[in-house]
Structures are given as C-alpha cells and as structure tokens.
Design a protein around this nucleic acid. Structure first.
Lengths: 148, 148
DNA sequence: TGCTAGTTCGCACGAGTTGCAGTTACGCAG
DNA sequence: CTGCGTAACTGCAACTCGTGCGAACTAGCA
C-alpha cells in the first residue's frame, strides 16, 4: 500500500474525503507487517484516538481493499486479516501460534497444474502451514523434556 | 475420506458411536465433489432424515475433520466448505459464481520459496482465483454484445 | 462563510458457528 | 434379551465477525 501522503491524493482524486480517522489508519497500516485484524487495528487506533468507531475501521479497510491498496486474508482460525503488502507474495502460517508472515515464491509460472478443465486462473494464493521458528524450537525442547 | 463401512469401524475403534445421523452424513459426503457447506449438507440430510439437527451436522463434520477424514476450507465468500478428498490436492475458485473445484499440482517440491526465516513448512495450500469455464464463456459473450 | 455529499458513530441485525442441558439411544456386559 | 453407562442428539441461547441503517457531523469546494 502507498504511503499516507500518496493515499491522501488517491482518496481525494476518487472524491473520497480525508478524515482524521482515515489518516490515522493510513499511518497504522503503512509498513505494518503484522497482518492485523480489524479488531487489532481498532484497539491501537482507539488508544491514539479515543472514540473512533469499529464501524469506521471496517469501513476504511474495505475502502482500501476495494482500491487495491490492501489485501484481505481469510485464513483458518479467527477473523479476516489485512495485509498492506500488495506486492506479489504469499504467506506462511504457524499452526501453533497462528502467526503469519510473508514469503516470496519464485517461478510460480512453472507450476504444472492438472484439472483446470476450462478454468482460467488469474491469481494464485499459496499458504504454507507449519511451525514458525520460535514454536518449532520450543516444541523440540518440550520433546527432550518429555516425562520418563 | 474412507468409505462409510470403513468409517464405521474407525469410529467404533475410537469409542465413538455409530448413529443413523452419522451414517447418513457419511453417505452424503462419500465421493461428494461439491465441497458442500454445513448448511448444504444439512439441507440434503433433512430431506432424507427429517428432524436431524444442524448442530449434529456441525458436530459430525468437526469429528471427521479432527480424524483427518475431511478437509475444512475457509475461503473468501461465505461459510466453511468441507472436502472429503484428503488426497494431496489444491483448489480453483471462480471469482464470479464462487464454484470451487479440485486441481492437482505437480512438482510442488520444486517451488523456490524465499523468506521462510526459520519457518518449518509442513503443508502447502494453493488456491487459484479466476473464472470457471462457464463464467468465462458468458463473460466473453457479454463483451461481444457490448453496447456501441 | 455556507452548502452538500461523503463520513462517522452507535445500535441493531444477520450469518455462521458453538456451548449448554435435558433427553435419547448405541454398544457392551450379563 | 435386558439393563446400564456414556456418548450423541436436539433445540435454544449465546457468541463472533461483519454489515445495514439513520441521525449527526464535517471535509472540501464555491
């Protein structure tokens, strides 16, 4: 997603207004690598701007997603997450702690897919399931501390 | 997912009981390629067994998923879908009609992924977005019928 | 400064799913 | 076949996530 200043312009150009609430959310989202949920953003935003409405957070997130500035991620476990990174990338989700982070896949076009059967693919979303480094390490530890 | 007869055995072995409701659901799911939702299964089941509860459908689906006999799919648009095909495969979803079908991807191991950063991948879920054959055809038609 | 359309907010609603409690019935032992 | 214990079924209420709606507000422009 673009920097707050560019978003300001982009919104105005579309006849959308630039409210303090939106500007706050722009700032909270820019360079945000945490894949936050609407609730999480609302919590952070509430601290900086008491009284902001959860409704407004959803509204703004939907607007940004519609403008292609935000990717919406519906994954297993919980609510929709929002990803300001709209560069071609994919995700790795930890089965244990649920943490999500970005990964980049090369040569995706080389994939050989059988069964499209007339389907015309336009996007490819890959989600790797597994264990993040931290969880994997602690799992190993638990294993060696197993009760006799 | 295994055939109803094998599931019967598998359930008994786990101390789970074999009720008519479950047997019905086993039959409805076996070889079901439609990726049904819980509601859809409930609707079909209700015709064959009036009085069956939606709660029971959810319960059984969760049990089967926990046993690894069913894959739960949380995709964009609506509710969780259930896939009795647990053989290594992936999905193609039509952006227009929402239809979902199975595809098979070869040489997945050859994928070059950057950014795992300690993450230990165990599963790979790929969802292709695009248009199914039917929708693509009708979209083409609309295009050629464009108003002048 | 004043107008107006887009925004915000709060509430209520809706879809999807789960928790709970009372009743039912599967599966095993006698 | 009968009786028992426990798992399962059902119906309802509750819960989560997200959206529709209307009144009040305000950004942006003339």
């Amino acid at each position: 997603m673009q920097a707050p200043a560019e978003l300001t312009t982009a919104f105005r150009q579309r006849g959308l207004k630039l409210t303090p609430q939106r500007q706050l959310l722009f700032r909270l989202l820019h360079d945000n690598m945490t894949h936050p949920t609407a609730e999480a953003l609302f919590a952070t935003a509430s601290e900086l701007m008491p009284g902001i409405s959860l409704r407004t957070v959803y509204q703004t997130l939907n607007d940004l997603a519609a403008m292609g500035e935000l990717q919406m991620l519906r994954l297993s476990g919980g609510s929709t997450r929002f990803d300001p990174n709209v560069i071609d990338h994919h995700h790795a989700q930890c089965d244990r702690c649920g943490e999500l982070h970005d990964v980049y896949v090369d040569h995706l076009d080389d994939l050989q897919v059988r069964g499209f059967d007339g389907f015309v693919p336009q996007r490819t979303d890959i989600v790797f399931g597994g264990m993040c480094g931290a969880c994997h390490a602690s799992a190993e530890t638990n294993q060696s501390h197993r009760p006799t």
